[in-house]
């Protein structure tokens, strides 16, 4: 299990940008958790040439894809000063996030420091990747392969202020077999015609819920269905799931998107898309509002901390 070496670490442009943004807007150093998946990907450039065996062995190793992150806004968020993981705080931080996404590693961002893992970062990563409770399955693996969270993303800024080059980052895989960091290349996945090659290796991580929509042939059967109590319950459950990704779109309208009638309902489909966008926007607004509150509280905390440090020194 330990000897599973990652080929590279992939991250989407917006995710990386948003990690850097959190780091660069924070008051001090930050850390956080990285979510995503580790997947074996069938090489898309299969060729008859067997001479390139090196590339074959390379492409047979899995790719870690970072799809999301949780930034604590401070340091020591799930470990102590010596870098020992505190399982309780980690669990609290994770909440139920790891039921949908696998925790594949963590990141640390610190200003004006050399871009090399520090003493504490080594301990945290080593402790995280030896924690078997956190292991997750590798997708598309031959057989049942599990991996512990072993990805470490290090962010730093140069020692001297520079106008253009403002941030540095490096990704590592921690190998428990050797007890050391292995630098990994980072593949930034972007969307656009120039990045078409990336599509094949990228899988979405917020899929549309699977809703049982039958093909209904007559309007009569629709009425029957809705009348029964069980049907009502099922209907409201489906509606709740749909509400998670689209705002104000009735489940009943989904059935019209299937079958021979569907051609006539492109407008309904467009409406679904626009309501999905609305949902995303209202979520963004919520996040923005709560971020502002968090910032306010952080500023307050910072002032208090500063006061305490001053008074402690005077004692």
């Amino acid at each position: 299990m330990d000897d599973l070496t990652l080929q590279k670490i992939a991250i989407s442009g917006p995710t990386l940008a948003s990690i850097i943004q959190r780091f660069s807007f924070s008051h001090g150093a930050v850390d956080g958790l990285l979510f995503g998946h580790v997947t074996h990907i069938a090489p898309s450039n299969l060729s008859d040439d067997h001479a390139s065996s090196s590339s074959l062995s390379d492409s047979s190793s899995p790719i870690a894809t970072i799809t999301g992150f949780l930034c604590s806004g401070t340091t020591h968020s799930f470990y102590d000063s010596a870098g020992q993981i505190d399982p309780l705080t980690l669990r609290r931080l994770l909440g139920d996030l790891d039921q949908q996404h696998s925790l594949i590693g963590w990141f640390s961002g610190r200003r004006k420091t050399h871009i090399r893992p520090s003493f504490r970062e080594f301990s945290v990563t080593s402790s995280l990747s030896s924690n078997t409770h956190l292991s997750f399955p590798v997708k598309n693996a031959l057989g049942n392969t599990n991996l512990n969270p072993c990805v470490f993303l290090l962010l730093a800024s140069p020692l001297q202020d520079q106008t253009i080059h403002t941030h540095e980052y490096r990704a590592y895989q921690f190998r428990t077999s050797t007890g050391s960091f292995e630098p990994k290349s980072i593949d930034i996945v972007n969307i656009g015609p120039a990045f078409r090659g990336h599509y094949g290796s990228f899988s979405p991580n917020s899929p549309f819920p699977i809703l049982p929509c039958e093909l209904r042939t007559s309007p009569m059967s629709e009425d029957q269905n809705d009348d029964t109590l069980g049907g009502m319950k099922l209907f409201s459950k489906d509606q709740r799931e749909l509400d998670m990704c689209a705002e104000g779109f009735e489940v009943g309208r989904l059935s019209r998107l299937m079958g021979s009638e569907a051609v006539n309902y492109t407008a309904v489909l467009e409406d679904l898309y626009s309501k999905m966008l609305n949902k995303v926007e209202s979520l963004a607004r919520l996040a923005e509002k709560s971020s502002a509150r968090v910032l306010e509280q952080e500023n307050h905390n910072r002032k208090l901390r500063y006061k305490v440090a001053r008074s402690a020194a005077l004692e």
Binding site: G28, R116, R120, A309
Partner: peptide
Amino acid sequence: DAELPMCAPDIIF
């Protein structure tokens, strides 16, 4: 960390 002066330092070798 000037933000957290009560915390233990970290070391980069």
